[in-house]
Computed example of a mutant assay.
Amino acid sequence: MTELNRALAGAAEKGIISAHQVSDLEAYLADRGIIFGPTAPDAAAERDDAALDARAAEDSEQPRFIRGFHDILITIGVVVVLIGLWGLGGPFLTLPVILVLAEILVRRQRLALPSVALTVALVHWVGITALWFVSEHEDAWRPLVFVLAFLSAFPIPLGLFYWRYRVPLALAGLMVSVALIGVVAALLALEKSLGIDLANENHFMLLALTVLVGALGVFAVAMRYDVSDPQRVTTRSDTAFWLHLAAAPALLYGLIALVFLSNDGATWWDGQASLGQAAAAILIVALFMLVGLVIDRRAFVTSGLLSLGGAVWTMLNQTGASLDNYVFVAFAVVGVTVLVIGIFWQKLRRIVVSLLPETMTARLHTAP
């Protein structure tokens, strides 16, 4: 580590500059020949490296919806008052309060976490209200028609909410709702054109493939937002965060479904899956963790933890291990995986990114 590196690490540790700016500044100075000679490694240098990694890990994916305890306090008040008003007056009383609070807390005061809470409250309001209306036709409509009518209620309110208040979660919710409508509409078109019932287990594979295509679409949009803001300094990065949070589990379980539906509907939680299918699930989870490292999004790591535990459970169950053993082994494997990836996130990411061509990594978030 050079003296320059150490100075930059200290600046990042004190919060003078953000960690992801350190590598950019180093590259800028190196291009102009401003490089200090290396010094002998010592404990202090190692601590500086560790501090830089810790700071980089904090800054690499930090959505701007928690800015302090003030936001948390206000959000608690928002949640409590909306729950109380919902119990007293239902949706007709709650919606005006959501909009009034949004005008005060989001449009005027620009509070981040309350904006998320109010967006979630709006989604809940739209969902409950839409369910009341479409439930009147539950017996007359086919299941997919019912779901399509329900989902169609979300885009306009979310679009208007984003247009007025510019909340990234509202924009992400709008895109996800449109993607879901597209998936359901495609399934409905397949049912009519092929004359099949997708609720029949014989056609679950087609259902999984359609969901997977929709999830890929959401992931593509998320990546579009990510590469448009590689330094993650604008709200486009926050929108990408929410989109990845939706796309990651959808992609994962779409792929997992393709693996397990081929075993007559067996799943890793019923103990009937084979060792090969459990191994395939572990490979899929590992692939998702690799993708998460490349794009610096932890949603692709966390989304696979349940499947990882289930796959370990299945493998131990197939070998005849006792219940006490494989329950705790599964927990231990998942916990160790989380800790290793979490602690060594930046080091692992540097290794992975260094193996990729520069044309691929140039527009990704910088690996410090």
Rank of each mutant, 00 (worst) to 15 (best):
V312Y: 02
G68H: 00
H203T: 07
L88A: 15
V301S: 13
A112H: 08
T234W: 00
M360P: 06
A220Q: 08
R108C: 06
T314A: 15
A102N: 08
D197C: 04
G77W: 02
G265D: 05
S262D: 14
P63G: 04
W86Y: 15
A172R: 07
A257D: 09
A56S: 06
D59R: 00
L105A: 07
L151H: 01
P41V: 11
V221K: 10
G37R: 11
R350S: 09
D53P: 02
I83Q: 13
G159Q: 11
F146V: 03
A140L: 13
P249Y: 00
A280G: 04
I256T: 01
A130P: 05
R297Q: 07
G37S: 14
A311R: 01
A44Q: 14
I74M: 13
A11M: 15
L88V: 13
V123D: 04
G214A: 04
A199G: 11
G89V: 08
H203C: 04
V167Y: 03
V329F: 05
I196E: 07
S307W: 10
L190C: 01
D270E: 05
L323C: 03
T337H: 01
L258N: 03
S152Q: 07
L190I: 11
F36H: 10
R142W: 14
A11L: 15
T366I: 15
A208R: 08
F133V: 12
F260S: 01
L356R: 06
D324R: 07
L355F: 06
L283K: 06
A189H: 09
V22N: 00
A246W: 12
Q231D: 14
E3I: 13
A130T: 06
A362R: 11
R236H: 08
P168I: 00
W242L: 01
A30H: 08
F260Q: 05
R236M: 11
L101I: 07
H203M: 01
R164T: 11
D71W: 08
A299V: 03
V285Y: 00
T319Q: 12
L209Y: 08
K192D: 12
T39D: 07
M360H: 10
M175T: 09
A43M: 09
V178K: 02
